[in-house]
Design a protein around this nucleic acid. Sequence first.
DNA 1: CCTATAGCCTGACGGC
DNA 2: TGCCGTCAGGCTATAG
Length: 267
Amino acid sequence: MPELPEVEVYRRYVERHALRKSVTGVSVLDARILGDLTPRALNRGLAGRQFLGTHRHGKHLFVATDGGPWLYLHFGMSGDIFYYRGKRDRPRFARVLVRFSDSSELAYDDMRLFGVVDLVDDPGTFIEERGLGPDPLDRKFTLPVFRRILAGRKGAIKSLLMSQQIVAGLGNLYVDEILFRTAVHPQTAADLLTAADVARVFRAIRPLLLKMIIIREAGAPNPPRSLISHREEGERCPLCGGEIRRTVVFGRTTYFCGNHQRLVRHR
DNA sequence: CCTATAGCCTGACGGC
DNA sequence: TGCCGTCAGGCTATAG
C-alpha cells in the first residue's frame, strides 16, 4: 500500500506522537519482519534512548535516536504504524512494539510481512548503498535532473517511474495516476517521449504527491476526477469519457484510459 | 540495459 | 457455510 504520501503521513505521525519519550524496551512479536537483525539487537539499539527526529526518503522512513542507531522502517504492501496507550488499541497484525516509559506504545503493524524493521547507522549511507534516486519532494529533484535520469533509457516509462533507483517513492498507484494525468501510455518507451511529455510528467509528480499527502492525512476520499477513483476495467474515464483498460506492465496491474493515453510506437 | 518470472506472506472477496 | 481461485498501492533474485 504505502507509497511516498502514505509514508510521509507516517513520518508526521511519528513526529507528533513518539519524539522525546524514553524507550523502555522493544517487543518483537514476529521476527520475520527484522531480516538479519535479532530481536535482542533491536532492543539493545533502542532501549534507554529517545527518538529525536525523522527523515524520509521515498518510501523509506528513518527515526533518529539520541546517540544510537536510526530506526529504519519500510512498509511493504501492508505496513502501518500506530501509537496508543491501552493495549486494547494494539493493532491486529502488530509485529514490533516500541514501549515508552509513560506506558504508551508505538506499534509497527504489517499483515503481509513484506515490510522491514531494522537499525541503520546513517540514512545517507543507506540511500547511497541502495542507489536510490532523488526524492521527488526534495529541492534537488528538478526538471534537468529528471531529464538526465531518463536520458538514454529505452524502457517502458511506467517501469522507470516504478524503479526506486530512478525516482524514490512512486509506486503502482501513483505512477498510473501520473501517466493518466499527462496522457502518456504506460508502455511508452522512454526514448519516444517528447521533451514536452517529459516536462509534463515531471510537473505532474510533485503536485499529485502533495495533494495526496493532504488527502491521506485528512482521511479524505480520493479525488473524484482521478484514475485512483476509477481503477476498474470498463469504468468511464472521468477526464474524457473513454474506457478504462487494464493490463500488466512491469509485472504489475496497470490501469489507463484507452482513449486519451495512446501508445506511441515510433516518432 | 531491459523484461519476465517466481517468491516472500496473509487476508479479503467473489463465485460456486 | 465452505472451498477455491484471484487479487492486493513492494521489492528482490534470477534467468534470458
